[in-house]
Amino acid sequence: MDSLDTLARWRTAQIAGVLVIALLALAAPLRAAEDDQIIRKEAWSFTGPFGIYDRAQLQRGFLVYQEVCASCHGMHYLHYRNLSEAGGPEFPEAAAKVVAASVEVEDGPDDQGEMYMRPGRLSDAFVSPFQNDQEARVANNGALPPDLSLMAKARPDGVNYLYSMLTGYADAPADVSMAEGMYYNTAFAGHQIAMPPPLFDDSIEYTDGTPPTIDNYAKDVTAFMMWAAEPKLEERHRVGFRVMIYLIIVAGLLYVAKRRVWSRGAH
């Protein structure tokens, strides 16, 4: 069982591997964004096998969400407790409690059978700005601001798209006629978006020295949306590394064992 034979076997194994990957890679072109959407690629701290979130960035991103986006968009899969959990913005628990207490949550019925309002707790889900879709539409010229909890996974090339869209507002080219109440955006599909430009330089105060620019706001809130969509990413990367090492060792041992066993029986 040596050289040539082994080589041939390895080649077969390699072909098998390449085929599996080629078959799987087939899925890739399906999710390319529409051709005329301008998507800028940004370097993110959380991509790659060892990627982790940048805590300070998530904290700034939460600030942007809270001060700007939250007036129109909910994030109802997040709970206030998540803000202080490991692998996220990791605010001190006291800070998360303050955030929670700043909203009113409907609870009940009490022992009189009445529903009542109380300050939010850590265990509550993020309160959405509108009671229902209809109310949201009325407040936004008929357009519906979608929930942002999963937005980073709900668009092709999620984070790069979001960043490009938030920084993609521009004056409409002369030959484009804009519909009533729509804004020109280079990244949005169809280029006409009903969301007014949400970010302006210097509109939110950063206390950690990060320049308060549209670009930074967009980047930070995008990272925050990524965490909201994928709160277990750090754990996944961490566990993944151990599993890969383990599997590679097991495969190596099995390969050696296989050669041993076969060299005994082959002759």
């Binding site: 194994a13 591997g17 599996v20 096998p49 599997l247 097991v250």
Partner: peptide
């Protein structure tokens, strides 16, 4: 052995 190699590809997708 083949299963272990397959599992490596599988895990790469699951985790990354």
């Amino acid at each position: 052995f083949a299963l272990a190699v397959f599992a490596i590809v599988f895990a790469a997708f699951v985790f990354y």
